[in-house]
Write a protein that binds this DNA or RNA. Structure first.
Lengths: 193, 193, 193, 193
DNA sequence: TATGAATGAGCCTTCATTCAT
DNA sequence: AATGAATGAAGGCTCATTCAT
């Protein structure tokens, strides 16, 4: 399975590790190549340039992240339960890979505008999942009926992202997943009529 | 008083303009110096290094930002009203200086971890103001009584910050201040018992 | 015979095309391989290195060039007529293969000294043909009797080469072969007592 | 005098030396900087990029070359004498600076097309001087009256350039200036009716 | 013979900071 | 206090060549 494009994934995993340990600006292509056990030039057989490594990293990892969440959500019908699942999964996945959390929450945000815009594109499906929950909540009369969807989505995403970023910056001194019920309660309250 | 250091402020204002127009990575010290009508070397008579310009920029501008909000809040007694004032002022000040908004919401976030940590220090008084409102709301029984203050603060700040960032990235196509009532209603709901 | 090394010639023809279209510095080995429909590695079964492709190209093409001229010259006895034939053939052959003309007149001259020295070796038989005509002209008393042969040869070759290079650089806007009589008249004049 | 823009000329002189000794492709910017006793970065205060050093080198040196010749020519009235002066000066100047001769005759010709086109522009005034002599020679009835000026110019320049290049490649084993009378005699013959 | 994935040496340029004036 | 010319470290990327298959 993983044997398909093994170098491609080797390089991405190496990039996560190197960036987590050395920071965005301390992560030279040569360092990533060394960590991946390939020659510098080999990187360029799989990625157009350095930026492309980072975008790909985000695509692959965020793709998994979103797929996991989307699949888990399908198991509930109620919007409120789906929101709870989303929060819990979001926190759980971040907790389960600290290296990746550092990279996506802290380091990749130092990238230039061009990369940030591409990252935003990758995030879109996640925002769409959130929008879907809000929509369903309105239809099920679990949430207020005239919610401003983009605004609500920004509240949900902004809240989760800020909580996660704080947790990463505080070096994960506490259990992130345990926060889920309280966060869920507040967000549901916020959306109720 | 401050007028006795005219160059200091010239340089900071120049930095805002240059960064807003050229982006973080397009803002060389020499460009800032030129915009400020001083020699490159002069910068280093007022700032220890480039990072120090940016921290100072954030300190000065965020100091004004927080002072305005703190003063406005004093005029209300009820925590909910204070929260409304905070939201409205936050949005209003961002709206009133688009250049500054770009710099603080988008460009300065591309800085390295060291600068980001210093920026977080500067933000602390603002977070303390938010904490104060939450505390007061619990005492006044306007909000639930057992709120996890750091968590709530992260929700409030995360929500406002995400909304503002989206507004800046969407190139201010809509009126930000008009969002205040709806945001306020959702947040108060979230905090109610 | 030569057909038994089809790849060898495929590669040389591909090199001419690729260099003519992409310039010397835009002609990577991989591009030549692709144009020749062989793998990169195959090139090295037929040529020691990249430089060797270019020397071989020059040898093969220049060999044909010189043979044609040498054969044509044999048909005249008078040195002056032979010189006319040489000029006409030189211009005619250049005119007949614009791709090759670009490569030999413009692109291959960007090569390094080592390659240029080898190219000079390849040119020697042509220079010897010229020397022969000069010698014969002196013996036949068509030309002055005490000509400095190397100097005269440099004049003849330098003149033809400069004219051809200009024609190639001007993108062959005019008929090169029509220049032959005038060039011949001037050169014969130059060599007369 | 030379104190005007001293670094600019330091760098150009260093470039001539470094290129003559190491060849075009062995002349890294850092090597030129070291020879000029300046930091690598200093180069870029005076030249836009590496190519610009070479174009400037050619401009400055060729400018002097042409000025010397043009001035010397003014002292004669007869086209034939002017041509003799031109040949003698051309050979004399090349002989007087072997390093420069290597650079202009051999190394700079390895540059890419872009640089070569710029070099051709720099050469234009020299070609114009030659054209002037031809024109004058026709008016004075020293030369034939219906010469094809571009063609004649190509013969003169091609001849001189080829002779000089051979001399440089043969490592100046003989006296170049002594060739002038014979070359002059041949060229004048060539142009006579 | 033929392949083509992998290698890794090599270099131009930028820009924050210094320091002689 | 102010200047601005000079510094020099640092890194992304290309491409000729190799070698296991």
């Amino acid at each position: 399975m993983k044997n398909q494009k093994p170098k491609y994934h080797q390089i991405i995993e190496a990039a996560v590790k190197v960036i987590a340990e050395n920071g965005y600006h301390g992560s030279q292509v040569s360092k990533i190549a060394k960590e991946a056990n390939v020659a510098d030039g080999t990187i360029y057989l799989y990625f157009k340039n350095k930026e492309h490594i980072l975008v790909s990293l985000f695509e692959v990892k965020m793709g998994e992240f979103i797929n996991q969440i989307a699949k888990a959500i399908e198991e509930s019908d109620a919007a409120s339960d789906q929101l709870y699942t989303l929060i819990k999964m979001h926190f759980r996945q971040i907790s389960s890979d600290y290296y990746l959390a550092i990279v996506t929450q802290l380091e990749l945000r130092q990238s230039n505008i061009s990369l940030r815009l591409q990252i935003n594109q990758v995030l879109k499906p996640y925002l769409t999942v959130i929008d879907g929950i809000i929509q369903k909540g309105m239809e099920q009369h679990q949430f207020g009926k005239d919610l401003n969807i983009p605004l609500v989505r920004q509240m949900i995403f902004g809240t989760l992202d800020e909580i996660v970023t704080n947790w990463v910056m505080k070096e994960q001194k506490y259990n992130l997943v345990e926060m889920a019920p309280e966060v869920h309660r507040m967000l549901v309250n916020a959306l109720s009529k």
